[in-house]
Design a protein around this nucleic acid. Structure first.
Length: 571
RNA sequence: UGGGGCGUAGCCAAGUGGUAAGGCACCGGGUUUUGGUUCCGGCAUUCGUAGGUUCGAAUCCUGCCGCCCCAGCCA
């Protein structure tokens, strides 16, 4: 088989295939849903979305986009009023929009179906498939049995239909306190799958719902509600994560008993990333216990955190594409996410010069009161972005770590007697090192070659080192925040001596530099704009703290650094 | 010791009886006014393991091993 044909077997329209696409393709072929493809993304509004949710969003919306006539609903699965809030609804909507997806006119809420769900429950009671149980939560747990032993039937299991109907109506009417009664499905207390041992369908909760207010005091459980939501909306493929595999028999059972439209549930493995925690519970702890500044802290794996860090939606979507969709539990290397980020930002980020740790240099043979406007390319990857000018003068700042008094092997940055290129500037040679009384280097005296204007000569001279710089008199002061992984352990969950994941928090995950100098044009930077600080990395003007008076830039990700590797090897 | 899943390179992941795609990471080298980008090359005689079927097995069968999930009135 030729490579081309081989590729064609698992790539369609440039989209890699996966087992879910194969199922859909087969369903399309057999006409199972009359050619429809209709998915949904069903978040519970009880927290902020994270990169794992992004995988699911990209999958569900992406599937819909890639099939003719495909649709994807956004549906809030708001069946538990005690955990859910309007704030989360809004943040989730914003994150999905930011990722570039649109549910159009299909924004739904499970709470809008409560009346219909109630009717369906009545129907199940009438056919003897559901009953009101008076057992306490604790008793229900005891009666359920264990993984290896069957459960036993509740003494209330055989109430007659009329009594069940009456009790259920009175549950809804608010006649009983929280926990006094539940509605249960009558299935099989000795079923090997615990989910089938008479699962609870409704519980009493005298709680105000963020949308339904106080209309209800009974709320449906996930297993009962979710299939109905899918059915009502005409979903074809209901995609969820692996832990719901055990729930599928129940999903099917409810729909079959009711005899209603029956979507199919398909499970895939959720995303895990190394050096990251992903559970809502743990993320909540990071916020509550102030390990981070909030849900949108740039070190958080939340969509809002990544956005503030400077990630682009395109990078996240590309990442979601590349990790694939399968059923095996896996941990993706965060290096892949960073690769997708750099790949996208390389094409789009404007190049600028910024000195994070300034070291002054004086060009002794450059005229004192002259300022030259040097032309600089905005983005070598995209000519249409044009050029800008930056001022060059006698006194400049360069990066302190671009100078070594004793140059190691393969060092081609600045050192005494060495010539380097100032990007878009001139060639300079270092002649003298000035120190203060503490023996710290405070200044370098250099000379420049007037014939190297623009950073280039015609004599074919080889100058390998190129440094970034800013003009001391013209540069803008800025704060720069250097971010690294929040955890230093590849698997934050595995802490030594029974410690929890917080023991693996990286104390150096944020380093704040307050005395940086950036090129003058950056005083016009707008919050959220992507930049590449030449030779250093991608940075973004902080969405919350950046202002013209006080510029603040977050390091999104560093550039690949092959010098760091060489230096490591030299040691 | 019940039920449901999953084992292909350091990390993801294709592969569906015809002789191991691709990406990340890593390692060499070329180009380069970013030690960036880019380009070229390398990187699984073998698919958890042991048997069996077959002309032929990662793909089919059997046994074994390992890992994950399930005992919320959470989702």
């Amino acid at each position: 088989m030729s490579d081309e044909i081989k590729r064609a077997t698992n790539i369609q329209n440039g989209t890699p295939t996966n087992f879910i696409r194969q199922i859909i393709d087969e369903d399309l072929k057999s006409g199972k849903y009359n050619g429809r493809v209709h998915t949904r993304f069903p978040p519970e509004p009880n927290g902020y979305l994270h990169i794992g949710h992004a995988k699911s969003i990209c999958l569900n919306f992406g599937l819909a986009e890639s099939y003719p006539g495909g649709k994807c609903n956004l549906r809030f699965d708001d069946t538990n009023p005690v955990k859910e809030e309007e704030e989360f609804v809004e943040s989730i909507k914003e994150d999905i929009r930011w990722l570039g997806f649109d549910s159009e006119d299909r924004l739904y809420f499970a709470s809008d179906y409560f009346e219909q769900m109630y009717e369906y429950a009545v129907q199940l009671i009438k056919t003897g498939k559901a009953y009101v149980d008076d057992l306490t939560a604790e008793q229900i747990r005891e009666y359920r049995g264990t993984l290896t032993e069957p459960g036993k039937e509740s003494p209330y299991r055989n109430r007659n239909v009329d009594e069940n109907l009456d009790l259920f109506r009175r549950m809804r009417a608010g006649e009983f306190p929280d926990g006094a009664k539940v509605l249960r499905a009558k299935i099989d207390m000795s079923h090997p799958n615990l989910n089938m041992r008479d699962p609870v369908m409704y519980r009493i909760l005298h709680a105000s719902h963020h949308r339904a207010g106080d209309t209800w005091c009974i709320y449906p459980m996930y297993d009962w509600a979710h299939g109905l939501e899918d059915s009502i909306e005409g979903i074809t493929h209901s995609i969820c994560t692996l832990e719901f595999e055990d729930h599928r028999p129940l999903y099917d059972w409810f729909l079959d008993q009711l005899g209603v439209y029956h979507p199919q549930q398909i499970e895939f493995a959720r995303l895990n990333l190394n050096y990251t925690v992903m559970s809502k519970r743990k993320l909540l702890r990071l916020v509550r216990e102030n390990y981070v500044s909030g849900w949108d802290d740039p070190r958080m794996p939340t969509i809002s955190g990544l956005r503030r860090r400077g990630y682009s939606p395109q990078a996240i979507r590309e990442f979601a594409e590349r990790i694939g969709v399968a059923k095996s539990n896996s941990v993706v290397d965060i290096a892949l996410l960073e690769h997708c980020l750099r790949e996208d930002l390389n094409k789009r980020a404007q190049r600028v010069m910024a000195v994070l740790d300034p070291l002054k240099i004086v060009i002794t043979n450059y005229p004192e009161d002259t300022v030259e406007e040097m032309e600089a390319v905005n983005n070598p990857e995209d000519e249409s972005t044009g050029t800008r000018t930056i001022p060059f003068s006698r006194e400049l700042y360069i990066e302190r770590n671009d100078f070594r008094e004793e140059a190691p092997r393969k060092w081609f940055r600045l050192a005494p007697g060495k010539e380097v290129r100032l990007k878009h500037g001139y060639y300079i040679t270092c002649n003298e090192v000035i120190r203060n009384d503490k023996n710290e280097i405070i200044e370098l005296r250099c000379t420049y070659d007037p014939g190297s204007r623009g950073g280039w000569t015609e004599d074919g001279r080889k100058v390998k080192g190129t440094l970034h710089w800013v003009s001391a008199a013209h540069a803008v002061k800025a704060e720069v925040r250097l971010y690294e992984n929040l955890f230093f352990a590849e698997n934050p969950e595995s802490a030594p001596d029974g410690g929890d994941f917080t023991a693996n928090i990286n104390p150096d995950s944020l380093k704040i530099l307050k005395d940086c100098r950036v090129e003058p044009g950056l005083k016009n930077a707008k919050a959220g704009e992507y930049y590449q600080f030449l030779r250093q990395g991608y940075f973004v003007a902080d969405a919350k703290d950046h202002s013209t008076d006080h510029p603040v830039f977050n390091r999104t990700v560093g550039l690949r650094d092959s010098w760091a590797k060489i230096e490591k090897k030299l040691k």
